[in-house]
Amino acid sequence: MEGSGDGAPAPDTTSQAWHGEGWPEYRASPPWVMAEMVASQPVLVAPILGLPAAREIARLVEDALAAGDPIVVVGCGTSEHGAQAVAELMDAGLRLGGRRPGLVEARQALEAALDPRPGGVCLAVSHDGGTRATLLAAEAARAAGARVALVTARSEGPIAAIADALLVTPAVDRSWCHTVAYASAILAGAAIGSALASLPLDPTPVAAYLQAALAGRAEMHPFAERLAAARPIIACGSGSDRVTAREFSLKIEEGPRIPAVARDLETLLHGHLVACDGRTGLVLLAIDDRGGERRDLRLRTAAEASSAVGMAPVALLSPASAGVIPSDAMPGGRFVLPPPPASPLPPLVPLLGGMAALQLLTLALVDVVGVNPDLIRREEAPWRTAAAIAEDAGDW
Rank of each mutant, 00 (worst) to 15 (best):
Asp12Ile: 12
Thr13Pro: 02
Thr14Arg: 15
Ala35Asn: 00
Leu49Tyr: 09
Leu51Cys: 04
Ile57Asn: 08
Arg59Cys: 10
Gly68Leu: 03
Val73Leu: 10
Ala87Val: 02
Ala87Pro: 10
Gly93Val: 03
Leu110Tyr: 14
Arg117Asn: 15
Gly119Asn: 09
Arg142Met: 05
Leu150Ala: 11
Ser155Ile: 01
Ala165Val: 01
Ala165Arg: 05
Asp173Phe: 08
Ser175Phe: 13
Trp176Thr: 03
Ala191Met: 09
Gly193Ser: 11
Thr204Asn: 02
Ala207Val: 01
Arg217Tyr: 01
Glu219Arg: 09
Pro222Ala: 01
Ala224Val: 02
Ile234Glu: 08
Gly237Cys: 07
Gly239Arg: 00
Thr244Ile: 15
Thr244Cys: 13
Asp264Thr: 15
Glu266His: 13
Asp277Leu: 08
Thr280Met: 12
Ile287Arg: 03
Asp288Leu: 03
Arg294Lys: 15
Asp296Ile: 00
Thr301Asp: 13
Gly310Phe: 08
Ala315Val: 05
Leu316Cys: 10
Ser318Tyr: 05
Ala320Trp: 01
Val324Lys: 04
Pro331His: 13
Pro338Lys: 13
Pro339Asn: 04
Leu348Ile: 07
Gly353Trp: 01
Gly354Ser: 12
Leu358Trp: 14
Ala364Ile: 05
Leu365Val: 11
Val366Thr: 06
Val369Asn: 10
Asp374Gly: 01
Leu375Lys: 05
Glu379Tyr: 00
Glu380Tyr: 14
Arg384Val: 04
Ala388Ile: 15
Glu391Val: 14
Glu391Gln: 11
